[in-house]
């Protein structure tokens, strides 16, 4: 099984260690990983701002970079969802369709495709899990509090295998952090307020780390934590799974 690693642009630029952790976790899971070096971005920042018509170049590039692999794996629910929902390439529609059907967010790839049942990692800390909306409500990585349906959680399934990890129960289990792409600057006051409230929920439960599957949410909350001079840090779930 050969997997192409799809690294979101802001992870590539600001959080390379998360991409490294993702690569190492995938290798630990026994898959062959290839990183197509000419990748840039899935085009979501434009599309969510109403400029989907400008994403043609990104789409063409994406199809070119990610054709020819069994799966495409990405350490972001949000970017994965964007590709799944909006990747179109008129000249290579078949390839685009294949990609859309085979692009996976990291945790769902591990639980659904690799079907990980045991995992060797240790992270002896108290953490709060932040669910990204696109991962949760978009990709359905875990059950949503609004629905009357059986609970499940793909990230939690993996986290439960991590030695020493304690996950706190939050007051609001799946409220949005307010990042929202360009929303974070276009609606700065609401975005920050949402972020502060999310951070407070974690802090009031005494967490040492806020963890999650989407670095964009975590970057936003990290910005708030650091402004508050908090000692609490953010960590991507790939880093937790890669800890010893």
């Amino acid at each position: 099984m050969t997997v192409a690693l799809f690294v979101p642009c802001y992870i590539d630029q600001f959080y390379p260690h998360v991409a490294i952790a993702t690569l190492q976790v995938l290798e630990k899971a026994g898959v062959t990983v290839v990183y197509p070096p000419k990748q840039t971005c899935c085009g979501q920042p434009m599309a969510n701002s109403g400029f989907e018509h400008l994403t043609k170049g990104c789409n063409e590039l994406f199809v070119k970079n990610f054709t020819g692999f069994d799966y495409i794996v990405c350490p972001s629910g949000s970017c994965t969802l964007h590709v799944k929902q909006h990747l179109h390439e008129a000249e290579n529609e078949k390839e685009a369709e294949y990609i859309k059907a085979h692009v996976y967010e990291l945790t769902e790839f591990l639980t659904d495709i690799v079907q990980v049942e045991q995992w060797d990692a240790r992270f002896p800390h108290k953490v709060g899990m932040h669910q990204s909306c696109h991962g949760q409500r978009g990709l359905k990585l875990s059950q949503m509090s609004e629905l009357v349906a059986e609970p499940f959680s793909k990230p939690d399934k993996l986290l439960k295998m991590v030695e020493g990890l304690e996950i706190v129960e939050l007051s609001r289990t799946d409220e949005c952090c307010g990042f929202g792409g360009t929303f974070c600057v276009a609606e700065e006051s609401v975005s920050v307020k949402m972020g502060k409230d999310r951070v407070d929920d974690h802090l009031s439960h005494g967490v040492e780390y806020i963890i999650g599957g989407d670095m964009s949410c975590l970057m936003h909350m990290e910005g708030i934590l650091r402004r508050q001079k908090s000692k609490v840090q953010v960590k991507h779930i790939a880093e937790i799974l890669n800890s010893h």
């Binding site: 701002s49 109403g50 909306c133 409500r137 949005c176 929202g180 609606e187 609401v190």
Partner: peptide
Amino acid sequence: PFASTLCGSCSNV
């Protein structure tokens, strides 16, 4: 339409 993070909770309720 831009006054939203597209979190999707609205559609679920």
